[in-house]
Amino acid sequence: MKTKKRKVSKTQSFNLKEYFTWKMILNFGLGFSLIIGAFIYVSPDLSAQAQNNRPVNIQSDMKGTFFYNPDCASCKKAYPAIFWHNFLHMANHKEQIQVVNVAYSGNQHFINEYAITKTPTMVVKGQHLTSDNGKQLVKFTDKGGQHG
């Protein structure tokens, strides 16, 4: 038995160009970029507000310890560099920087224990660096507590 080939008219055929125009792709790309951009912009701030609102134990196997107060303007300026450093090193615990919110009552004892005079302060191997420059704090950590 022979089957007849059915002719499909142009109106019935699938035309990829009709479904995926450059304009549609561009609009999708711009929308996606805006969403990702908003996430990148907002993530560190949300993390700074929510992180360590509980007592923490200092983990000596981490690269350094960042003491901050989420209401401190200098801490807000420095925090994104720490956030993204940890994000990029999330697979390697020893390369991460521990973040300690000293505004939380359960963590305020670290102020005296680590001689924190102001925030933000990075402590690496007993060495302190207080700065609102997050990149400088990360660099200090990468150099094992050496200034410069």
Results as ranks from 00 to 15, higher is better:
Met1Ile: 11
Lys2Gly: 13
Thr3Asn: 10
Thr3Gln: 12
Lys4Cys: 08
Val8Pro: 00
Gln12Asp: 13
Gln12Arg: 13
Lys17Met: 07
Tyr19Ile: 07
Tyr19Lys: 12
Phe20Tyr: 12
Thr21Gln: 09
Trp22Pro: 09
Trp22Ile: 07
Lys23Arg: 10
Leu26Ile: 13
Leu26Pro: 08
Asn27Ala: 13
Phe28Thr: 09
Gly29Glu: 04
Leu30Arg: 04
Leu30Tyr: 03
Ile36His: 08
Gly37Ala: 11
Ser43Phe: 12
Pro44Ile: 00
Ala48Leu: 13
Gln49Ile: 14
Asn52Val: 07
Arg54His: 14
Arg54Ser: 15
Arg54Gln: 15
Pro55Phe: 05
Asn57Phe: 08
Gln59Val: 15
Ser60Tyr: 05
Met62His: 03
Lys63Tyr: 01
Gly64Leu: 03
Phe67Gln: 04
Asp71Ser: 13
Cys72Gln: 08
Cys75Leu: 02
Ala78Glu: 00
Ala81Gly: 07
Phe83Ala: 04
Phe83Trp: 05
Asn86Trp: 07
Leu88Phe: 12
Leu88Ser: 12
Val99Tyr: 01
Val99Phe: 00
Val100Glu: 01
Val102Ser: 00
Ala103Asn: 14
Gln108Lys: 13
Gln108Pro: 01
Asn112Gly: 09
Asn112His: 12
Tyr114Asn: 07
Ala115Trp: 00
Thr119Glu: 02
Lys125Gly: 04
Gly126Trp: 06
His128Ile: 02
Gln136Asn: 11
Asp142Cys: 06
Gly144Ala: 02
Gly145Arg: 01
His147Pro: 05
Gly148Trp: 09
